[in-house]
Amino acid sequence: MKSFDSVRRSAMKLLTGKRVVGNVLVAPAIAYLIRFLALPLLAVFAMSFLSRGSYGNVLFKFNPLNYVRLFDPLYAQILGFSLAIAGATTVLTLVAGYPLAYVIARSAPKWRPVLLFGVLLPFWTNFMIRIYAWMMILRSDGLLHAFLSGLGLLRDPLDILYTPGAVLIGMVYEYLPFMILPLYTSLEKIEEAQLAAAADLGAKPAQVFWRIVWPLSLPGVTAGVTLVFVPAMGMFVVSDLMGGAKSLLVGNLIRNQFLSARDWPFGAAAAVVLLALTLILVFVYTRQTRGAALSR
């Protein structure tokens, strides 16, 4: 009994010791998050209740009207347009990324790291440079045009750059890896035996997919959709460069308040509302999919 007790005690000691080590290890990350995430967010929230001075300075005068101003059909329209772009990006990355993730997950284990490496390779180049590269490709007399006209498929100059289509190309390109990686993680966990069992019991390939593969991959779908949709809501660089800056997205609206309009409190209010809306959407979405996964 005594020896058991001492073992238990030393185990407890080790455990609590581990906790101390663990606390020490996470402390820098926590401090970083507090300083560079929590405090700035609090500052933005506080700023959203202040007023604009004549020269664009911030006056310490309580002003809840910043939020009232956002209830304007104009801003609803801009929000709707951003939702549409982010939504389309999410759906397109899912449709394009799912088969690819599936193929990688079902390929021979020795090839998987190579294929995943291929998915991640673009991250080695700066995002802006990749966008400018796309602009060179899509220009009316750019690389794509040279390629297509070389094959004799095309005579007229291409009319893709500076259109909404170009914006979607850029967005899907940018966010595709964020969809593929979580999908791959889920799909890779599905046992070959489960699929074989379903087939043995008479399920057709479509039934195997919808009743076995899809439900089991839902955690990956949820993670991928969230990872793509949330940053896509705030993205405006792609639309400015590849879309010719012809339409305003929520990101542009917020940035303009801090730059040309020099109305920081209103910009802060818009940022708070965007954050809240995105959180609500993601919350509702993850609860729904979790419910769906459980009910199957």
Partner: peptide
């Protein structure tokens, strides 16, 4: 020239031009 208190007004019109349909 600096627009002073009219700056948000200018921004509003620009937002309508670019964000409106």
């Amino acid at each position: 020239d600096e627009k002073g208190d009219a700056t948000p007004q200018w921004d509003r019109v620009w937002t309508e031009i670019k964000g409106g349909s």
